[in-house]
């Protein structure tokens, strides 16, 4: 029984640690499925995280904080969308600039917030709570539904996006744009409109991830709070082979490795002794894992595992 409790506890921690990465990964998938490589995920998360934290701290209203956090990352992705879709700038450079921009803005905004805790209303609304019925499901209940509502919301979003891509005509049109915008255009699909909507929606999800990270998970501001989670998400998009359901797996794998790091900070029990591992090495684990995962991903050769064929390209109808 004790073992069960500790496994449960560990799974809960995984879900907590993976949720913001899951949101950002889903955001990345939305962008890349319409052919837009978005390296600004990190910046968008930081925009969402810092603006929501600022509002939560100063006004104490959780919903307002969520709204403003989302608006901030929407604004960030609107800049990216306008540049890459309408002005057809290089997506890599534009995405990088967005990350630098988001990091800078969040640092500036965060100067006054460092080390201050959030008012209690925030945790009361967004903190862990048992959802009726669902929380009674064995295993899944405690792991997912006795947590912050953001945790099940992330999974629900992943499932919804999956259903959107596979079961709806709009989802099909979306996938066609990422593969071959010329074909989509010739079929009468409005490429620009789809691209804008998906890139903005992707930015919004990054923002939600940022809000969760600062207002729910951390509860306290520190500079560059995301610690590269946006970059991990860029890698997880590849790991998930652009499949929202596999993104759940990827994000929680990240959570698990992170969790292992935390667990063994006090040393690993070894025949009655304690093996101490340098804390920095434990902190590195998620990033090393990501690199290893990417190495393995590259071994897959199936055609369906390739990125959307027009990823990274701008589309201009009259190109010759």
């Amino acid at each position: 029984m004790e073992a069960y409790t500790s496994i449960l506890l560990f799974l809960q921690v995984i879900a907590m640690l993976g949720t913001h990465v899951l949101f950002a990964t889903l955001g990345g998938i939305l962008c890349e499925k319409v052919g837009n490589l978005n390296l600004g995920l990190e910046g968008l998360m930081l925009l969402g995280a810092s603006f929501s934290f600022y509002v939560a701290l100063n006004y104490g209203n959780p919903w307002l904080a969520l709204a403003i956090g989302c608006l901030a990352s929407l604004a960030g992705s609107l800049i990216y969308a306008f540049l890459t879709i309408s002005l057809r700038t290089n997506q890599v450079v534009t995405g990088l600039a967005l990350t630098i921009f988001g990091t800078g803005v969040s640092s500036m905004l965060g100067k006054t917030m460092a080390g201050v805790s959030l008012p209690a209303q925030i945790a009361a609304t967004f903190g862990a709570r048992s959802l009726p019925v669902l929380s009674k499901i064995p295993l899944l209940g405690p792991v997912l539904f006795q947590q912050s509502p953001f945790v099940p919301a992330a999974i629900a979003t992943a499932v919804l996006i999956y259903l959107f891509y596979t079961k709806t005509s709009l989802g099909l049109n979306t996938r066609i744009i990422g593969e071959n915008p010329g074909a989509a255009d010739a079929s009468g699909i409005n490429v620009t409109r789809y691209k804008y909507i998906n890139v903005l929606a992707g930015g919004l999800l990054c923002g939600v991830g940022g809000v969760y990270l600062s207002c729910v998970y951390a509860g306290i501001w520190q500079n560059e709070l995301t610690a590269g989670a946006g970059w991990i998400a860029v890698a997880m998009v590849i790991f998930s082979i652009w499949n929202p359901l596999r993104a759940i797996m990827g994000a929680y794998l990240f959570g698990a490795v992170r969790g292992i790091g935390f667990k063994f900070q006090g040393g690993i029990p070894f025949f009655g002794m304690k093996l101490m591992i340098n804390a920095q090495i434990l902190d590195m684990l998620p990033y090393i894992t990501t690199i290893l995962v990417l190495l393995f991903i590259n071994l897959r050769k199936k055609k369906e595992y390739n990125p959307p064929a027009s990823l990274g390209n701008s589309y201009f109808r009259e190109d010759r």
Binding site: K167, T168, S169, L170, L172, N173, I176, A183, A184, S187, G188, I189
Partner: peptide, 9 residues
Amino acid sequence: AGSSTSFIL
């Protein structure tokens, strides 16, 4: 592609 009128395929 682009011609389906129903939302669900």
